[in-house]
Design a protein around this nucleic acid. Sequence first.
DNA 1: TATAAAAATGTAATCGCTACAAAAGTATAA
DNA 2: TTATACTTTTGTAGCGATTACATTTTTATA
Lengths: 135, 135
Amino acid sequence: MTKVENISEYLLKNDIKPSYQRMRVFEYLTSKQNHPTVDKIYKELIKEIPTLSKTTVYNTLKLFMEKGIVTVVNIEDNEVRYDADTSLHGHFKCEKCEEIYDFKINPSNIDYGEIKNFKINETHLYIKGVCDKCK
Amino acid sequence: MTKVENISEYLLKNDIKPSYQRMRVFEYLTSKQNHPTVDKIYKELIKEIPTLSKTTVYNTLKLFMEKGIVTVVNIEDNEVRYDADTSLHGHFKCEKCEEIYDFKINPSNIDYGEIKNFKINETHLYIKGVCDKCK
DNA sequence: TATAAAAATGTAATCGCTACAAAAGTATAA
DNA sequence: TTATACTTTTGTAGCGATTACATTTTTATA
Ligand SMILES: [Mn+2]
Ligand SMILES: [Mn+2]
Ligand SMILES: [Zn+2]
Ligand SMILES: [Zn+2]
């Protein structure tokens, strides 16, 4: 995704008041592009924001979802991950190193089969396997 | 998917002892092709099997997963659904009627982008939108 | 400043799922 | 058949992620 130069402006443009916590959560999502869980975000940020509450992380991500600047990545059924890249792209999770890779998808290559005339709002492509490093 | 004529034989062939509960859970998955949650399976089957325990449904699905005769459908982050059709196909969830539609995918049409030489074990394509009936 | 509104925080409650032990059912051999 | 071991099911207790909600803190406005 195109790097978000000014987080404050980006949040404002998306109808979100740029509080300190919100900016730090969004910054974390965009700098590390690691599709973190709520717990991961919380554990990393509390190192630098000792007063941070996990509820705030939940509240913030919920708001970001409503405003459409983050999406959920549901690869595993027991972990919810978040992604500040809302453009169309696929996710690959390596079953050995657990790393999640983004990969490009050509929109015109997507095979919508017999639902092609339904109204399509979101497309999610998730792949599991073994990455190059672990093969 | 090709209809499973004899559930007992099918389970045995997949190294699963065909207990009454296991057969009924598998039968439910294949007859109604509605991608049910654990709770849905439990609530439906307990009507006819009054002694059924929800733990048994969890145990059974876990076993089916390990033996590879069911897959998980992770469209929403707060509901885990199960599918006895393990062949490659896509899922569409209508945001209005909540119905889940299967649709065919041509394996050769899948766009693996820059991960095409990774080892691919599972491919999941999930679409959200509005179905024809609800448009 | 004073006041009101918004955001962050901490705690309690909820819910899906798992762990575990006891009960029920099934297979095997004397 | 009957005894014994093994498998499966069941019920309960516990865990962990998420949400609800009241309180505190921060920010905006007069
Ligand atoms: Mn991504
Ligand atoms: Mn399906
Ligand atoms: Zn790897
Ligand atoms: Zn619909």
